[in-house]
């Protein structure tokens, strides 16, 4: 069997996991909120993008608008719920976002029937053969975008004033506030960034995978595994985790005997990382928030 198509597909889905993982991680590090609605926000963005394209809006305009809608939706949630979330523990913060995810999912199921939908990016029409696999421009964009976003996020966190504020909040929220960091501004920026990333991921995933509200909402599961591999701290490990999970998932699926279990790969990888971290006396979430 030619494994190259599986390697390409794995790297592509892995890069979307990584891209979303970066969005989830930056928000988590800044606000302490593990946003379980990340997939749903991306799903809603993709569904609206599809609707706008159906209504004959120019696809690039529709996609840009939907990334903005993703950012606005996350920002709106951050603005409304942020002050309340700041006062509760992390588990309840995550549960609050789960409620938000279900509300978005319900809205999508109400607004769109379950007929077939496809969202094709113009870049997916441009393809070339590569050793028995077929690679299209969207594949390349997915991979490049994941790497670019990680590099941009690392540089921004290290060298920009906003990045320094984000790191300050990640280290000690109360102390950062006492020292004059504009906590709300930094948090809102993180919400908007995370929402925009969710919007981009949703559109890419809809093109590469299934344009369905539930499928896109539960895309958060492999993304969470990716963030676990990044130990809720490292952008680079998140990138590698996403690519690794995508690759292993795809390669496992190529093996007929194990194919049905390929969706379990993110769980297996996340569990292995957690167990390995515990053995070394490291509890990932505690490290970040301590």
């Amino acid at each position: 069997m030619n494994l190259l198509p599986f390697i390409v597909a794995g790297l592509v889905s892995g890069s979307v996991y990584a891209l979303s993982g970066v969005g989830v991680l930056v928000l988590y590090r800044t606000t302490g909120v593990l946003n379980l609605a990340h997939g749903a926000i991306g799903g809603l963005s993709a569904m609206i993008a599809w609707q706008l394209v159906q209504w004959e809006l120019q696809p690039p305009v529709a996609f840009a608008l939907c990334v903005a809608i993703g950012a606005a939706l996350a920002l709106a949630f951050g603005l409304v719920a942020g002050p309340f979330l700041a006062r509760i523990d992390e588990l309840r913060k995550a549960i609050a976002t789960l409620g938000f995810a279900l509300a978005i999912l319900g809205t999508m199921l109400y607004a769109w029937n379950d007929k077939a939908r496809t969202l094709r990016l113009p870049t997916s029409q441009i393809s070339f053969p590569l050793g028995g696999a077929r690679v299209n421009l969207t594949h390349v964009i997915c991979l490049a975008l994941a790497v670019a976003v990680v590099i941009a996020a690392v540089l921004a966190l290290r060298y920009s004033a906003l990045g320094a504020s984000m790191r300050a909040l990640a280290s000690d929220r109360e102390l950062a506030a006492v020292l004059g960091t504009n906590v709300r501004l930094v948090e809102n920026t993180a919400w908007a960034f995370s929402g925009a990333v969710a919007g981009v991921s949703g559109i890419l995933l809809a093109d590469q995978n299934r344009l369905e509200p539930a499928a896109l909402t539960f895309f958060i599961i492999p993304v969470l595994a990716t963030v676990v591999v990044g130990r809720f701290a490292s952008l680079w490990l998140t990138l590698l985790g996403g690519l690794g999970i995508g690759l292993v998932e795809s390669l496992v699926s190529s093996w007929t005997v194990l194919s049905a279990f390929s969706t379990a790969v993110p769980f297996v990888v996340a569990t292995a990382v957690i167990l390995a971290s515990r053995r070394r006396g490291v509890i990932p979430i505690g490290v970040v928030r301590a």
């Binding site: 069997m1 198509p5 599986f6 597909a9 889905s13 995978n209 299934r210 499928a215 998932e249 795809s250 699926s253 190529s254 007929t256 194919s259 390929s262 969706t263």
Partner: peptide
Amino acid sequence: NERNWLPTIS
């Protein structure tokens, strides 16, 4: 709930 159709296509 399958999302990866590559094995089937293969």
